[in-house]
């Protein structure tokens, strides 16, 4: 095994373990996690497999294919996070707004 394989395997196994501890032990989550970790481990141990898939998709090297897919996935994740931030901002705004209106109403009541 080469050094980079040791490094990547350690990383993948740690992340897998972390998720396994954090997950609420729903069967589906654990299956998805297991499949993803197994895929990562397989491609790290036999990197030529990615090249075979890449060739089928007319991409030169397996590493390039992984790079392109990562860009897509990161893009998707960023959009999801943005959508979430905007939702949070709207909830936050609603709380601050209700607070402002409630305080004004109390003042109105007092001055009556």
């Amino acid at each position: 095994m080469t050094n980079i394989q040791v490094l990547l395997l350690t990383g993948v196994l740690f992340i897998g373990l972390y998720y396994l501890i954090r997950l609420k032990r729903r069967l589906l989550d654990i299956i998805i996690l297991f499949v993803m970790v197994a895929a990562a481990v397989t491609f790290i141990l036999w990197p030529d497999l990615t090249t075979i898939i890449a060739k089928k998709l007319n991409v030169g090297r397996g590493a390039d294919l992984i790079f392109y897919l990562s860009i897509l996935i990161f893009w998707f994740v960023i959009l999801k996070l943005y959508a979430r931030i905007r939702r949070l901002e709207q909830q936050f705004t609603a709380i601050i707004r209700n607070d402002a209106l409630k305080n004004a109403e109390e003042l109105d009541e007092k001055s009556k």
């Binding site: 936050f92 705004t93 601050i96 707004r97 402002a100 209106l101 004004a104």
Partner: peptide, 8 residues
Amino acid sequence: ILRHRVNL
């Protein structure tokens, strides 16, 4: 006066 507790 209506006051937001934080700047929105």
